[in-house]
Design a protein around this nucleic acid. Sequence first.
DNA 1: TTTTGCGGGCGAG
DNA 2: CTCGCCCGCAAAA
Length: 506
Amino acid sequence: MPTEAQQRVNCVHSYGMKLSWDINDPQMPQEPAHFDHFCEWPDGYVRFIYRSDEKKAQRHLSGWAMRNTNNHNGHILKKSCLGVVVCARACALPNGSRLQLRPAICDKARLKQQKKACPNCHSALELIPCRGHSGYPVTNFWRLDGNAIFFQAKGVHDHPRPESKSETEARRSAIKRQMASFYQPQKKRIREPEAGEDQDDSDHFNNIPPLENLEEFDTIADTGFPIPGQHCFSLPNSDAYKAACDLATIQGEIMPPFQKYANPRIYFPRPPCSYELASPGYTNSSPYPTIYKDSSNKPNDADWVHLNALQYNVNSYCSFERSCDFTSKQHGWKSALGKAGLGERTDPGQFQAMATRPYHNPELPCRYLTTPPPGAPALQTVITTTTKVSYQAYQPSALKYGDNVQETKNLSGCNYASENMPMSIYPEALDLPATVTRASSPTGSLPLKIPGDCRAIRPTLAFSQESAPSRTDRAEAWDVCISGVGSAISYSDRVSPFFSYGNEDF
DNA sequence: TTTTGCGGGCGAG
DNA sequence: CTCGCCCGCAAAA
């Protein structure tokens, strides 16, 4: 049985979900006895109750790029998700991951941001809008009432996580330091004192080579990635991530770089089956899925790139695990992640579905291992309580809100499953569009703990009541932290250069 | 310069 | 009426 601390870290406990309330209720629960720990990555239809003195809650922070939305209600602050900025060509970074920038909140800054080129391949950047709430951006609501700050999220992010705000800030400050030292060669490099011996790789930004001009710096500073050819990311993956890991730890307030894994920067194209079959209305214009669709039998160059990247990711994941030594750093993570709080989603009226998360051999390409058989049920919102989890290197999930077909998000990041932590999906009875199915996505998995996630997965309709335990039982047995990854994506309405990718220079 | 929050206003449903 | 979203303003970072 997990300790409270574990629950906190794993984000599996939500007092907010234990109470029945809605952000719009005239009267909120008065003087709640318990509060949730701040959750940086709320996902799904979740509710939390924070102490009114919780700084992050006061600032209405979120790992997701949320912008203020006018809801004409002075008592309730509403924010909607901006999605994530990615490379239009979905190029693989040297470390195998993909660019997932945090969209600038300010419209003007965002437009400016989008005009910039991918720091890795110089192709255009693309903003993937969030449409996780019935086709609209996921919305978060904040309400201060008495000694509590009520938080309610609506929708399931259908895109990868962007870089967290703190991560972005940390990176920028690191780059500034780097630049400062670069332009003042007479001065000794400024290093993070606390970095210690790990410094060499922990601050890989220090490896940023001299820039030709400020423009480049600008690009790097904004995107966080050096231009191609530079050795910054030539470090072994483990080192690169360790660096990020250490940096995160040092920063003490940002999520561990897990999200880089948990939140696949590499999209795994949809498996040949599932949603397409399940969703007649699906317009396969998504670049990612397309590649696989067209090359399901014979990997093309792009495929291999993906596969290689996957392997890379998986391997680095392993390396990462080793290098970061989760166990020994547990406390560090905890302190850094103390805010994470996932709740028990025992909201009445909600039903939970479980999705089986197949265990995938990390050594093999997920795609070929996880592709569900053609006859596989499109809906797999079932999660076994003993699922080994999985880090999903690729996020095959795709969400197609338009036709009510949704793919199950990758639950992997939460791997606590391997720790005997049950996983649960909390569907939101309310607000649930006529969702019919949630196709499961194949995932590459690795047993690994990835703390700090707060995810609730919306169920799908296809889930049969019979197959689900009583609500109460579900709540007790399946409470879990669903984390990580996941994102289902629908690129159906976006045109991407990815199509022409297959025969290109990959 | 960007973030954040506020609120007027508009259109769609 | 609600909701999404555009816009500008202003304070703060």
